[in-house]
């Protein structure tokens, strides 16, 4: 935890213009350390999703700056943003976003396909990752045939396949029942501790948040307070 993987300075994000102008973030300055697990907690409208989008380089801040592994991201072009996302981040979404037309393996290897990895290597790495998540026998199935928990495991496999330094999980258990949700949580935290992957979870589930080393509690576009230590 010596160096911060992500650092923000006075992040402001404004949507709309004039009368309809809405400030989603009102100056966020924080650091996320390497191999840390952080939960961004808050009610809807608190700005937690916006913060995650900015941290994940999916959106650019109106004001302020983001430093990724010591590099100022504001100087980068669109193409470099894309490449950074592809190489350093993994995404786990609440709605999974699996392509129903494609097999599990094809879905899981999509980041490698985008990165330009050959098909043989893609499939090999895809199978390895699926095996780690006990999903190997589902590799050739269409994504639609999976249960909710299996879908989220496929989603995690997709987030893992490019060996990311940071995994962003946006309400990863939001669409799952409690039991399945806990399994998925265990997988995520195992990856975090065993592989030293930085985990940034956006959630309003307090149990999930409690498992993280640090919690950023957000309200009205600002960090209200920080909590440290695993409380659950």
């Amino acid at each position: 935890m010596a160096s911060p993987v992500l650092e923000t300075h006075g992040l402001v994000k404004t949507y709309g213009h004039g009368e309809s102008e809405f400030q989603a973030l009102k100056g966020i300055t924080t650091k996320i350390w390497n191999a840390e697990s952080v939960a961004v907690v808050g009610k809807s409208g608190s700005g937690k999703s916006t913060l995650m989008h900015l941290l994940a380089l999916l959106d650019a801040p109106t004001q302020g700056s983001i430093v990724l592994s010591g590099q100022m991201t504001s100087q980068l072009g669109a193409r470099e943003f894309s490449q950074l996302r592809n190489e350093t981040f993994g995404f786990v979404f609440q709605q999974f976003f699996l392509n129903p037309q494609q097999t599990v393996l094809e879905n899981v290897t999509l980041p490698l396909k985008i990165a330009g990895v050959s098909k043989t290597e893609r499939n090999q790495r895809g199978m390895e990752t699926l095996e780690q998540l006990d999903m190997a026998e589902k590799a050739k199935n269409k994504a639609t045939t999976l249960s909710g928990g299996q879908k989220q495991r496929a989603c995690i496999a997709r987030a893992l396949i490019n060996e990311p330094t940071v995994i962003f999980a946006d309400e990863p258990t939001g669409n799952l029942d409690t039991a399945t949700g806990e399994i998925v949580e265990d997988i995520l935290f195992d990856l975090h501790t065993l592989r030293m992957i930085t985990l940034i979870v956006v959630t309003h589930d307090e149990d999930l948040a409690a498992k993280c080393q640090r919690r950023l509690i957000m309200q009205d576009g600002q960090i209200l307070r920080e909590e440290h230590g695993v409380t659950a």
Binding site: A56, S82, Q83, R85, N86, F97, N99, L110, I114, A115
Partner: peptide, 11 residues
């Protein structure tokens, strides 16, 4: 799908 591909780093 386009959003996902772009999020995952497709230019």
């Amino acid at each position: 799908e386009i959003g996902l591909m772009k999020a995952l780093g497709m230019s």
